[in-house]
Simulated assay, not measured.
Amino acid sequence: DHAQLKKHLADFIDAYNFGRRLKTLKGLTPYEFICKRWTLEPDRFTIDPIHQMPGLNT
Rank of each mutant, 00 (worst) to 15 (best):
H8S: 14
L40Q: 14
F12M: 13
I34E: 10
T29S: 07
F12K: 10
R20P: 02
P30K: 05
N17T: 01
D43M: 04
I13D: 01
D14S: 14
I34G: 08
T39R: 04
F18Y: 08
G27S: 13
R20C: 05
T29A: 13
I13F: 09
L9Q: 05
E32K: 04
P30R: 10
Y31Q: 15
P30G: 07
A15C: 06
R21G: 12
Y16A: 04
L28W: 05
L25C: 00
D43Y: 12
E41I: 06
D11Q: 12
D14I: 07
D14H: 15
A10Q: 02
W38N: 03
Y16P: 00
F12V: 12
E41H: 13
I13Q: 02
D11A: 03
K6R: 15
K36V: 00
R20T: 13
L9I: 02
K23M: 11
C35H: 05
G19P: 00
R37W: 06
F33L: 04
L9F: 09
A10F: 00
L40S: 12
K26G: 02
G19H: 13
G27M: 10
G27R: 03
L9M: 03
D43Q: 10
K6L: 14
I34Y: 10
L28G: 01
G27K: 08
R21P: 14
L25D: 03
P42T: 02
L22Q: 09
G27V: 09
Q4R: 01
A15M: 06
H8V: 06
G19A: 06
F12N: 10
L5N: 08
D11E: 15
R21D: 07
C35G: 04
F12Y: 14
K23Q: 14
T29L: 10
K23S: 14
F33Q: 09
Y31D: 12
Y16S: 01
Y16H: 02
L5T: 06
F12T: 15
K36F: 05
C35A: 10
H8E: 15
T24D: 12
K36S: 11
E41N: 11
L22G: 01
R20F: 13
T24V: 14
G27I: 07
K23A: 15
R20M: 05
I13C: 03
D11V: 01
W38V: 00
L25Y: 02
I13V: 12
R20S: 07
L25Q: 01
K36P: 01
E41K: 11
K7W: 04
F12L: 15
R21H: 14
K36H: 06
D43H: 09
R37C: 13
R20A: 09
K36D: 05
L40E: 13
L40N: 07
L5E: 13
E41T: 13
E41G: 03
A15Y: 05
I13K: 10
N17G: 00
K26Y: 03
R37Y: 08
A15S: 11
I13H: 02
E32C: 02
F18T: 03
H8M: 15
Y16V: 02
C35V: 13
E41C: 09
